[in-house]
Amino acid sequence: MSSFIHLRFQEHSCHNLCSALHPLTSLISTLRCFPAIYNFGDANSDTGADSATFGRLPYPNGETYFGKPSGRMCDGRLIVDFIAEKVGLPLLNAYLDSLQSNFRHGANFAASQATIQPVNGQLCEGHYSPLSLGIQLLEFEQLKVRTYEFYNEANISHTKGKGGLPRPKDFSEALYTIDCGQNDLYFLVTTMTEDQAKAAIPNITNQFVQVIEKLYQEGARKFWIHNTGPIGCLPYMVMYHSKANEVDEIGCIKSYNEVAQEFNKQLKYRTDQLSCDLQGVEVTYVDIYSAKYTLIKEATNHGFVDRFEYCCGNANCKCWEKSETNVSACSNPSQYISWDGLHYTEAANYWIASRIVNGSYSDPPTSLLNAR
C-alpha cells in the first residue's frame, strides 16, 4: 500500500473515503442505499463487543485511524466500516457497548472469537466466545422488540427517529451483513482430519442458514453474506501449523484452505436455495475468499511486504491478548496485510473493501449503491 493511500486514511473525512471507493462522489453524501446496517459475525467485523464485554483491547490496536483502542482487532477500520462509509452511514456501534452508542442507523452484534455453532460440548469457553451467531440473533431480536415497545408506549410514529434508537420501519429496509465461520473452521482443522472436518461442515452451514431464516421471519429482506477467507494463509496458521509438504504454491496450508473452500461451496449452495425459497429476499453472496487470496498471492505487487509477515506482537506476546502492557508494533502498518497474524490491517481491509463493494466478487454481481 502506497504512502499516499496511508495519508488519505488519516486526512480524509468519511465521505471523501467513500468517494475514493467509488466514482459517484457527488452522490455519496445525499444517497443512502440503506437506512441502517445490522451486522453479525466474528473478529473480522467486531467493532467493540468483545472489548466491552471481556476487557478493553490494548494499544496499539486502533492506532492508525482512531488513535486509541477502538474495540477492533486491527490498527484501524474493518471491512464493515468501509461498507458503512460506502453507503453514507456512520460506523456501527457494538450492541454491547453501553457508552455513547447510537443505533439510529443500525447496530453491530459481531464478537471476536465468535462461532456459528453454539459454545458448548467440544467448543469450550475460554477458546471461543459465548457470543455465538445464535446469541447475536437473540440480541438483535431484543433490540427490535424493545424498540417497538418504546415507540408504542411513547405513542411515537414508527417512521420518526427518537434519539439513538432505530426507527421501527427501518428494520425491513436495512442491510443485514454476516461474516462468520473462521473460528468454526479453525476448530475443525486443528482438531480433526481433513475428511472429518469436511463431514462436519453441513451442520455448521445449517446453523448459519437458520439464522438467516430467523432474520427473514423478523422482517429482514436484504442480506450481504461473506464467505470465509483462506484460513490456511493466515501467518499464525502458517507459523504454527504447517509442514513443508502441506503448503501450496504460495506457502499457504493447502488442506486448511480446502476445508474453507468446501465450507464456502456448501454455504453458496444453501444461500442460493434461500433466494428461491424465501419470497422477496435478496441475498448477495460475497466471495471474500477469492478477494483475500488474490491480495495475499499478489502482496508485493500491491505495495505490501512479504505475505506472511505481520505488524503487531510476536510469538511470546500476542497483539489480541488483553494485557496491562502495550505490545510493540511496526512503524508502517499500511505495508502489511496482516495486523497480528490472525487479523487484517486497515490497509488490507481497504484493499478488499474497494474490490467487493462494486460487485466484482459478488453473486449476483451487484454494487452496494445499486442494491437499494
Rank of each mutant, 00 (worst) to 15 (best):
residue 2 S to W: 00
residue 2 S to H: 00
residue 12 H to M: 15
residue 13 S to F: 06
residue 21 L to G: 15
residue 25 T to K: 08
residue 25 T to C: 15
residue 31 L to C: 06
residue 41 G to R: 00
residue 43 A to D: 09
residue 50 D to R: 08
residue 58 P to N: 08
residue 59 Y to M: 10
residue 63 E to F: 05
residue 66 F to N: 04
residue 72 R to D: 13
residue 72 R to C: 12
residue 76 G to P: 03
residue 81 D to L: 01
residue 83 I to K: 00
residue 90 P to H: 03
residue 92 L to V: 02
residue 92 L to T: 05
residue 93 N to Q: 06
residue 96 L to R: 14
residue 104 R to K: 12
residue 105 H to T: 08
residue 117 Q to P: 02
residue 126 G to L: 07
residue 126 G to M: 02
residue 127 H to A: 14
residue 130 P to H: 09
residue 130 P to A: 08
residue 134 G to Y: 04
residue 138 L to I: 01
residue 140 F to W: 02
residue 143 L to Q: 13
residue 162 K to Y: 15
residue 166 P to V: 11
residue 171 F to K: 01
residue 179 D to M: 10
residue 183 N to K: 04
residue 187 F to K: 05
residue 196 Q to P: 00
residue 204 I to R: 03
residue 213 E to G: 01
residue 213 E to T: 11
residue 219 G to R: 06
residue 224 W to P: 06
residue 230 P to Y: 11
residue 232 G to R: 01
residue 234 L to P: 01
residue 238 V to T: 11
residue 238 V to F: 09
residue 242 S to V: 07
residue 245 N to D: 15
residue 246 E to T: 15
residue 252 C to P: 11
residue 255 S to T: 10
residue 259 V to K: 01
residue 271 T to N: 09
residue 280 G to R: 00
residue 283 V to A: 08
residue 289 Y to H: 14
residue 299 A to H: 06
residue 300 T to D: 12
residue 304 F to S: 05
residue 306 D to W: 06
residue 307 R to G: 01
residue 308 F to T: 04
residue 311 C to Q: 11
residue 318 K to M: 13
residue 320 W to Y: 15
residue 323 S to L: 00
residue 325 T to G: 02
residue 329 A to F: 06
residue 334 S to L: 01
residue 341 G to H: 05
residue 341 G to F: 04
residue 344 Y to D: 06
residue 347 A to I: 08
residue 351 W to S: 09
residue 356 I to G: 03
residue 357 V to W: 07
residue 371 A to K: 12
